[in-house]
């Protein structure tokens, strides 16, 4: 809103200036015939488009609530947050799915964070100019690989590798999913972390270098700590991407809805919330308890992603408003 007013004011003040320069004409010239009408038309169609986007999001949200909320009445909380997900036996324990999602997501972040930050540091601080120019677009391309292609790669290359090297019965495990998700979260993490490192003022580097810090000490003890809020945002955004990802995860995690309780369940099949919804939605009877439960999972997922995004957005907001050490 503010920007539009500003530009309108600017335009009118400009036109009055032009009018002042032209001899023999005083004051503001009348707008050319039809112009204000066109202006009105464009403005209102933009407004309609903008509001309809908001409207659609709200409608989707209401639909999700309408279809999902009944589950919290139809099924007892003890069942709903139990450990067993067998919808055919009226057992709707979502806990293994929630923990499954959390497990895969956390594991993928544990892999992607060091890799992503190290890559961002390399691109921004170490790589020569031409390498940087090659790497940056390559990483953007990485983000564009369809997840089903990655899933395919995961099934046929990564899973057999996991099975043979870890000596486990199947390669379709939480770990396999985590590696794929890490790969998918990497472009986001790298580019946001790189921006964060880029905004660390050069004077910080100078100050550290002038104290006799080596290049590496400067990066590790000054630049990265100064960029940490941006790096945290990067991780949050990557996490948001990982937790919502469906296809690749469904293809490589084995989809067994069991509780991943011990550490070695990292190398056993798990089932995530997204995979459950995607796999079962096509088969349920419209309006049944099972149907509602899948939408219930959708609500839980929505809330989790929403929370993660809020945390990330707050970090960005804080960063902008703190000034100084951006």
């Amino acid at each position: 809103m503010g920007a539009r007013h500003l530009s309108l004011n600017w335009a009118s003040s400009l036109s009055s200036k032009i009018a002042g320069l032209v001899p023999g004409r005083k004051g503001k010239p009348p707008p050319p015939a039809g112009r204000s009408y066109v202006e009105f038309l464009i403005e209102s169609s933009i407004r309609v488009l903008g509001f309809s986007t908001i409207g659609f999001v709200l409608l989707i949200f209401f639909f999700l609530l309408r279809e999902g909320l009944p589950i919290f009445r139809e099924v007892a909380p003890a069942n709903l947050f139990g450990t067993r997900w067998y919808p055919t036996f009226d057992l709707f324990g979502t806990l293994p799915l929630i923990i499954g999602s959390a497990y895969v997501t956390v594991a993928s972040i544990a892999i992607a964070l060091p890799l992503g930050v190290a890559t961002a540091v390399f691109i921004r601080e170490v790589a020569p100019h031409w390498t940087r120019e090659v790497l940056k677009p390559l990483i953007e391309v990485l983000a564009g690989i369809p997840s089903v292609v990655l899933g395919f790669f995961g099934m046929h290359v990564l899973a057999p590798l996991v099975r043979t090297t870890m000596d486990v019965p199947t390669g379709l495990t939480a770990f396999t999913g985590a590696v794929l998700l890490a790969y998918m979260a990497l472009p986001t993490i790298i580019s946001v972390a790189e921006d964060a490192i880029d905004t660390v003022p050069r004077s910080y580097r100078d100050a550290a270098l002038a104290m006799g810090a080596t290049h590496w000490q400067t990066i590790w003890r000054v630049v990265v700590p100064a960029a940490r809020s941006g790096i945290a945002t990067a991780v949050m955004l990557g996490m948001g991407r990982a937790i919502g990802e469906t296809m690749a995860v469904m293809m490589v995690t084995g989809n067994a809805a069991r509780m991943p309780i011990s550490l070695n369940s990292l190398f056993m099949p798990v089932r995530t919330m997204t995979a459950t919804v995607a796999a079962e939605m096509g088969e349920v009877a419209n309006g049944s308890v099972h149907y509602h439960s899948l939408f219930g999972i959708g609500i839980i997922l929505f809330i989790l992603t929403f929370l993660i995004n809020i945390v990330a957005a707050t970090a960005i907001f804080k960063k902008r408003h703190r000034g100084g050490l951006r």
Binding site: D206, G212, T214
Partner: peptide, 13 residues
Amino acid sequence: AILRRRVGMVFAL
């Protein structure tokens, strides 16, 4: 690094 320990610097800000 050793040179910069021998030659210290203080900046405008």
